[in-house]
């Protein structure tokens, strides 16, 4: 009501009335605009590739699991709905022994994806997660792991990392990774 002290009361009152009427006119105009919503189950809405829906674990271009079970996603998760355990396999790779997301608690904030250093965990534009039984919302690794690279096509963590692992059945030994020199012969006499 502070407005009234500046302008004359009458013109302010007219302003106010005009404002309300204009509002109504604007809303009325929308009688003729197309609805933004769609008839959902029959007609699927467009969801952008970066839409934050169901979480998946992706594989690297070689078809190996990207997840190295570093626990960063679980640490970043604000609702603590991720639990996992690391295991080291004979091929030198670290994998999740189990990887569990409790979707009944997930808030799809995408922090896990942001925290993931290997692009393993990704949110997908799939939103159809409803279940009749809450227990079915607990996804284990076999439910999460997909056979694809997700949004990042080329990245392979183990080709950058310095640890020795098998890639495509061949040993990537020390010095074989990208941007690595061959291992130093410590018994060599060269200066």
């Amino acid at each position: 009501m502070g407005k009234f002290s500046k302008q004359s009361t009458v013109s302010a009152a007219f302003d106010m009335i005009f404002s309300q009427l204009r509002t109504m006119a604007l809303v009325l105009k929308h009688t003729f605009t197309k609805a933004d919503t769609v008839e959902y189950p029959e007609q699927k809405p467009y969801l952008a590739p970066r839409y934050r829906g169901r979480i998946v674990l992706t594989r690297d271009p070689d078809g190996e699991e990207r997840c190295v079970a570093c626990n960063l996603c679980a640490a970043a998760c604000p609702v603590d709905c991720i639990a996992l355990q690391q295991t080291v396999d004979d091929d030198g790779r670290k994998r999740a022994d189990f990887f569990r997301i409790n979707f009944s608690r997930c808030i799809f904030c995408g922090f896990c994806e942001e925290a993931c250093p290997t692009y393993a965990i990704q949110l997908t534009p799939d939103i159809e997660l409803a279940e009749y039984d809450r227990q079915n919302l607990v996804y284990e690794k076999e439910h999460l792991l997909i056979n694809g690279v997700g949004k990042y096509h080329d990245y392979s963590f183990y080709r950058h990392s310095g640890i020795a692992v098998d890639i495509n059945g061949e040993r990537k030994a020390k010095g074989d990774a990208q941007q690595e020199k061959p291992p130093i012969d410590i018994k060599g006499l060269m200066p």
């Binding site: 604000p78 603590d80 709905c81 569990r100 409790n102 607990v138």
Partner: peptide, 15 residues
């Protein structure tokens, strides 16, 4: 870092 919530037993009971 812990929150009092955890998914460590969610496989047994979601509650």
């Amino acid at each position: 870092r812990a929150s009092g919530r955890t998914a460590m037993t969610a496989n047994q009971s979601v509650h």
